[in-house]
Amino acid sequence: MNTFIHMNALSPGQRGTVTDIRHTGEMRRRLQDIGLIRGTPVECVGRSPLGDPAAYRIRGAVIALRDRDTALIGITPSSPWD
């Protein structure tokens, strides 16, 4: 069974599907604009050298998001054999 984690826990190369977004207001809008809603597949593609913003592939584009923002997004990680 797949477990539920926060998006900032994705390690580079790992994929998952968004299950829950706990942002409200402006940031929720921003995320919707870039196509991040419940059910969107995401992939962590890397971390910045100082560790904090991480880069995610979201609907074909690479977007950098800070950990404090991704901590409010729930993810179901894909199994490695998917």
């Binding site: 942002h23 402006e26 940031m27 921003r30 995320l31 870039i34 913003p53 880069a55 584009a61 690479v62 977007i63 950098a64 998001l65 800070r66 404090r68 923002d69």
Partner: peptide
């Protein structure tokens, strides 16, 4: 406090 931040990294 810092506000939320999204930055696109273009190819």
């Amino acid at each position: 406090v810092p506000s939320s931040f999204t930055l696109e990294l273009p190819p």
